[in-house]
Design a protein around this nucleic acid. Structure first.
Lengths: 273, 273
DNA sequence: CATGATTGTTTCATCTAGTGAAACACTATT
DNA sequence: AATAGTGTTTCACTAGATGAAACAATCATG
């Protein structure tokens, strides 16, 4: 059979899973590329090179994204940047999270008590993403923002969520690699598992410069009505302001706050000691 | 010429502009529908009804959006909800806004001085969208969030941005309708134009319960290097805490802060009086 | 318990509409 | 002036998105 016309296999582009609407997948990949490109934006050709798509295709997809507000085109440089639509969507997302509303007063209280910045975050695979933040007036630095991601294994909130999650999830995170963020990051799987064991025992997780050299933190888990850990609260600040004893004090305090929020979320079988 | 084969006009679906990648336009419209549906989410059929698309189409588009993280599917109700990807993107968006970084310290200072919540916002057509917020500890209510939209014509920040924008923009906003948000909203085009005139004279805009019955506010504009008003800062709070005299005091103070930020953005020809 | 209504998923033939090459336009750079 | 590097438009082709219909699964209802 010599007349093999279109063998046509094996040349899947950027994000072809074989299944799905290709143009949509491609367009979404453009969004990620632009998002991760920093504030300078990306020109048409640069974008098409990164996406490994023909420039015409990128041009049309991006044009739609522009008219829909997901991208904007810098009037002077012709570069693509993220548009306001993404803010709109995130606003809807955050506004519909009842967890966030319920937790907010507790976060404020904690912030006042600890005089440190408090975050509310959820886990998404190997990373943690912040959905609310109450900044302490005293906090000199603002190293985070709502919507930001950080590695789950190197953060207090990530550890506390993993500790109470399905062990399979933990193994996935370990398999993905316990990257060293600082010299204090726990990178050994065996040690990491025993850390989580300790977290389960304590009911809160502590982070001593494992993610950022000069930042300590302590986190407690929030559970939903099924008993799944759906989110966590975390207090973080400069090491000199948060020594171990302070972290342990706060940890106990945060357990009760987290438990109170859990109750709002329908958590019942709570023995909060 | 009787053989008109494909007349093919007039049956444009949801967002067909004729030009562009239809599947992408459709998928994006799904995002908006889900976003505006509140926390309950939308089932497949409900979504296809709203989008006026066949359920199979919605199914496939939504499936891609789910695998890409833009939507999630509630495990119990099978309803579509916004996914974490939108937070990721908004985080990138906010992180790349240098305006936001430059303005933040000024916002904090203003918050401390006024002891009221301060917002940074930009205009997008007929609405204003907040890109940063510094909450005052004293503020009892939190009626806004980053990413939220409000009508430009009924907010101090919207008015201040319009006042220094192209008059054509103003007319567009007027044409879109000056909806009454409260009984204090200026709804008469003639009166509205004279209000903007006053704003240009003062250099700041005041809002007396025009958007929310019990909220007053005062805003000042930020300009970029081309002299275009790109953003505004606004202080808002309960009417009893922000009487007119106070608003005017703050207005002057905010003009200088806004001017300082404008300078960071490359604004030069500044006669900040 | 059977029946029917409602929602979600898969399959498949049809032909729309997304694709990419090439031509075009425009601006820097040499 | 020539060349390289951009962004935009056109157009023929057919890959691949589409929607009808069948299938599955769940939930009411008589």
């Amino acid at each position: 059979m010599p007349n093999i016309k279109n063998v046509n296999q094996g040349h899947r582009s950027t994000c072809d899973d074989g299944k799905g609407v290709r143009s949509l997948q491609r367009a979404l990949s453009l969004l990620w590329l632009v998002a991760h490109e920093g504030s300078d934006g990306l020109g048409l050709l640069a974008l098409s090179r990164l996406a490994k798509l023909h420039k015409t295709t990128v041009y049309r997809l991006a044009s739609v994204l522009v008219t829909e507000g997901f991208l904007i085109r810098d009037p002077v440089t012709d570069c693509y940047r993220l548009g306001l639509a993404v803010l709109d969507l995130s606003s809807s997302y955050l506004g519909n999270l009842t967890l966030r509303q319920e937790a907010l007063p507790y976060l404020s209280d904690l912030m006042k008590e600890a005089d440190e910045t408090v975050h509310l975050g959820v886990r998404d695979g190997n990373s943690v993403i912040y959905i609310e933040k109450v900044r302490a007036p005293a906090s000199v630095i603002a190293h985070t923002r709502v919507g930001q991601r950080e590695g789950a294994h190197a953060t207090a909130i990530g550890k506390v969520l993993l500790a109470f999650s399905d062990p399979a999830d933990v193994e996935e995170v370990i398999a993905a690699g316990l990257d060293a963020m600082t010299k204090h990051t726990v990178t050994d799987p065996v040690q990491f598992r025993s850390v989580l064991e300790a977290v389960r025992r304590d009911g809160y997780a502590i982070n001593i410069g494992e993610n950022h050299e000069h930042i300590n933190a302590v986190a407690a888990p929030i559970f939903d009505h099924t008993g799944k850990p759906i989110a966590g609260i975390v207090v973080s600040g400069l090491v000199q302001r948060l020594p171990l004893t302070r972290l342990r004090e706060l940890g106990e305090r945060m357990k009760t706050a987290a438990f109170a929020i859990s109750r709002h979320m329908g958590y019942t079988r709570g023995d909060h000691t």
